[in-house]
C-alpha cells in the first residue's frame, strides 16, 4: 500500500516530460477544406481536420473513395484545387504547404516529412545498396562524412530489424517485408515529424504485417512521430491509429477516436464497413 503511494508520488519524478506536455499543443498539421477533382470526377472534397504532435490518424474507405488523393494532396504529390495544408514548420511556424514554393516543399519532403509507399519499390532506389538507400536523405541534407553516414545507416537497419551484414546488398535481394522495413528506415533516418503512409502493410503476408505493425508502433512511440495512414484494413487502423477518418465518394463521412468509430459507428456507410469485416 505504501508502495503504491510512493510510486504515485514518484510519478512526477519519473515522468517530468509528461507533466511539461500538459499545455495544449498547437496542431502539427491543419488541413482546411481540401478539395481535388480530376475533371468531372471528384477526388476528395472539403476535407478538414487537425493532427496533433504524436497522433496517428487512419484514413479508411473503399477503393476510389478519395483517400489516396487526399494523402497525395497533403504530402505535396498532388496539387489540390482548393484548400490549405498548414504544417507547423520548425523554422517559421505554421505555413501553408500548398502555396509555399516547390523547393521549400521538397525540402520538407526530405526532412520533416516522410512518405511510405505501399509498394516498397516505389519508395526505394533498387539500384542502390540498403546502406545507400538509408543514407540518401542524410546526404541530401548535407552529410558529407562517409563513416558517419554508414554508422547511421547501420544503426537504422538495426532499428528496423535488418541484419547489419545486409547493408551492402541491394533491396532486390530482400523479401517484401524487409523492403518495407528498409523503406521505413530510409524515411525515418532524418528524424521526420510527420509520416504519410499509403497502405503500408498492403501486399505483405499476415505474419509479416504483424511484425511491421509492431515496429511502426514502437517507432511512432519512441520518436514521438505523427502519422497519417491510408489503408482499407480496419485491423491495421485499430492497432496503429489513435484517430480514424472514414471516406466515401470523396467525402469524409465520419471521424473520431479509432475504437469509437469502429465500435459505435454513426454513419450508415461506416456501419456497413464495420459489419462487413470477416471475423477470424
Amino acid at each position: 500500500m505504501t508502495d503504491a503511494q510512493n510510486s504515485s508520488k514518484n510519478f512526477a519524478k519519473i515522468f517530468p516530460k509528461n507533466l511539461a506536455a500538459q499545455a495544449a499543443p498547437a496542431p502539427l498539421l491543419s488541413v482546411r477544406d481540401l478539395t481535388k477533382s480530376y475533371g468531372a470526377h471528384l477526388g476528395c472534397a472539403d476535407v478538414s481536420f487537425d493532427l496533433f504532435p504524436g497522433e496517428v490518424m487512419g484514413i479508411v474507405g473503399e477503393s476510389g473513395s478519395g483517400k489516396s488523393t487526399l494523402l497525395g494532396c497533403m504530402a505535396g504529390h498532388l496539387r489540390p484545387d482548393a484548400g490549405a495544408v498548414i504544417f507547423d514548420t520548425r523554422r517559421d511556424g505554421p505555413r501553408d504547404t500548398v502555396t509555399m514554393s516547390e523547393p521549400e516543399r521538397r525540402m520538407l519532403g526530405r526532412t520533416d516529412w516522410a512518405f511510405v509507399h505501399q509498394n516498397a519499390r516505389d519508395g526505394l532506389r533498387v539500384g542502390v545498396s540498403a546502406g545507400g538507400n538509408v543514407g540518401e536523405r542524410l546526404m541530401a541534407v548535407g552529410a558529407r562524412h562517409y563513416g558517419d553516414i554508414r554508422a547511421a545507416a547501420t544503426d537504422w537497419l538495426g532499428r528496423v530489424e535488418i541484419a547489419p551484414d545486409r547493408i551492402d546488398d541491394r533491396p532486390g535481394t530482400f523479401s517484401g517485408g524487409m523492403q518495407q522495413r528498409l523503406q521505413i528506415a530510409r524515411n525515418l533516418v532524418t528524424g521526420p515529424r510527420l509520416v504519410f503512409m499509403d497502405e503500408p502493410t498492403g501486399g505483405l503476408d499476415v505474419s509479416v504485417q504483424a511484425r511491421l505493425l509492431d515496429l511502426m508502433r514502437g517507432l511512432v512511440r519512441d520518436m514521438g512521430l505523427s502519422a497519417i495512414i491510408v489503408t482499407h484494413d480496419l485491423a491495421v487502423v485499430r492497432l496503429l491509429a489513435d484517430r480514424l477518418m472514414v471516406m466515401k465518394s470523396g467525402h469524409v463521412v465520419e471521424q473520431g477516436l479509432t475504437d469509437q468509430v469502429l465500435d459505435d459507428p454513426q454513419h450508415g456507410y461506416t456501419q456497413l464497413l464495420v459489419s462487413s469485416v470477416l471475423q477470424v
Binding site: P103, V128, G131, G132, G135, E136, M139, A140, Y146, D168
Partner: peptide, 18 residues
C-alpha cells in the same frame, strides 16, 4: 534547378561501400 544533389553522393557512397 533546386540544387538537390544528395543523389550524387549516393553514387560515391556506393563506390566506397563496394
Amino acid at each position: 534547378a533546386l540544387e538537390e544533389y544528395g543523389l550524387m553522393h549516393v553514387k560515391l557512397y556506393e563506390d566506397i561501400s563496394r
